[in-house]
Amino acid sequence: MTRFEPAVFVLEDGSRYDGHAYGARGRSLGEAVFATGMTGYQETITDPSYAGQIVLMTAPHIGNTGVNDEDPESRRIWVAGFVVRDPSRVVSNYRATGSLDDQLVAEGVVGISGIDTRAVTRRLRDAGAMRSGIFSGPDAALGESEQLEIVRAGARMSGLNLSAEVSVSEQVTIPATSERIGSVAVLDLGVKDSTLRYLAARGLDVHVLPQNVTTDDLLAIKPDAVFYSNGPGDPAASDDHVELLQAVLREGLPFFGICFGNQLLGRALGLGTYKLPFGHRGINQPVVDRSTGKVEITAHNHGFAVDAPREGVFDSPAGFGRVEVSHVNLNDDVVEGLNALDIPAFSVQYHPEAAAGPHDANYLFDRFRDMVIAGRSSQRIGRHSDATTPDQESK
């Protein structure tokens, strides 16, 4: 292979960007989105939330630290395609075990380099995320009209359920790595490894469950709490997960949701969701915690959001009591968190595990831990109050 093999990046509106083949050669289709992180490209491409998407990195220089065996967030690369401006020609990091280019080739991920990523980002900000395609190798020689037709025949993200593609196929258990306080059932909708590590570090045995688990199967493991992970796809296409969550909430189990889990809590509470024009993706999003007024810099990866009243307390349309919006994005006022006031449930739209990224919101795992401890204490009190002494039974 020559160093500058031709490749082209095509958007569904007809925009075309000529560049060089990068990673595997061939054809890749997906929703075009941009990520604004200056670091953490390996964590980005291995985040299952990016399944079905061609990710463009706004940072111009990508690949200089190579890849290693410690930073991946899951078992494989999930991005449908990868777009960069200047790929590093050398790898310079003591932890590196290989180059990003070679890893993309090994996992069959088609990419493109050498294009004006600033121009593409501006286009996506103006027109919104859209279907796209990368064409290299023999596919780069296809006619422009044929390439555009192929892109426009691709799947739209709206209405798409991708949970089955990214979830585990059978239960996996991770023991607590600190003093045990209980167990949590994690519905794997595209969970990141760092999330599981943080839960285990809070003293929880982590039971990672397939996305198609039934209510009976989930309750059979007798978890002390339930967690819904991040993940790809349209929350409006996940009715089964919403029904499962409503059953969990009726059981009174403490619940914490991240990203896709936040959107599904919103739906379970009776709220709607909608697609953002170009989404939030990166590790520099300012969010305000309304309970404290503190501004947190947070990591994001989502193209959908919850439609909820921004001000005051409101009643859950699905009958789960009072709810409030706990966090709001300071860039565009998008709902970034929900807090149920009458049941033990809360969620955030961003990624508090933040790998790579800021750790401003890591305290949320502690909040969840405290909720689990409180739930176990109330269960013990309830059991004691329900018990009767022999004297009471004889009266």
Rank of each mutant, 00 (worst) to 15 (best):
R156S: 12
A155G: 04
P175S: 03
R156I: 03
A176T: 00
A141R: 13
L142D: 01
R156Y: 05
S163C: 08
A164N: 06
E144C: 11
S158T: 14
V168P: 06
I174R: 15
A153F: 04
R152Q: 15
S145W: 02
E170A: 12
G159P: 04
E165K: 15
G159C: 01
A155W: 07
V151D: 06
V166G: 00
V172N: 00
S169F: 05
Q171N: 02
S163W: 10
N161R: 07
V172Y: 06
R152F: 13
A155V: 12
S169H: 14
T173M: 13
E144N: 13
M157G: 06
P175L: 01
L142F: 09
G159M: 02
Q147H: 10
A176W: 00
S167D: 08
S167W: 09
L162I: 04
V168A: 11
N161A: 12
T173H: 01
V151T: 06
M157F: 04
S163L: 14
R156T: 09
T173W: 00
E170R: 14
V168G: 07
G154E: 09
R156D: 08
V166D: 04
A176P: 01
S145E: 07
S145G: 03
A141Y: 11
V166K: 12
S169M: 05
P175A: 06
E144R: 15
G154H: 03
S167M: 11
R156E: 07
R152I: 11
V166N: 07
V151A: 08
I150Q: 11
G159N: 01
R152C: 15
E170I: 00
V151L: 13
N161T: 02
V166C: 00
S163D: 10
V172I: 09
V151Q: 01
T173D: 01
P175T: 04
R152D: 04
A164S: 12
L142H: 08
A164W: 05
Q147M: 15
G143D: 13
E170P: 02
G143F: 07
V168W: 08
V166A: 00
N161D: 14
S167P: 04
L160S: 10
E146N: 09
N161I: 03
S163V: 11
L162P: 05
P175Q: 01
A164C: 03
A176I: 00
A164F: 05
M157Y: 03
A155E: 14
L148I: 12
G154L: 07
S169I: 02
E165G: 03
A140H: 07
V172F: 05
L162V: 02
G143L: 06
G143A: 15
G154M: 07
L160F: 08
V168H: 09
I174F: 12
S167L: 11
S158W: 03
A141F: 13
T173G: 00
V168E: 04
E149C: 10
V172G: 00
A153M: 12
E144G: 14
S158V: 13
P175N: 03
A140K: 09
I174W: 10
A164Y: 11
S163T: 14
V168T: 10
I150S: 05
E149G: 13
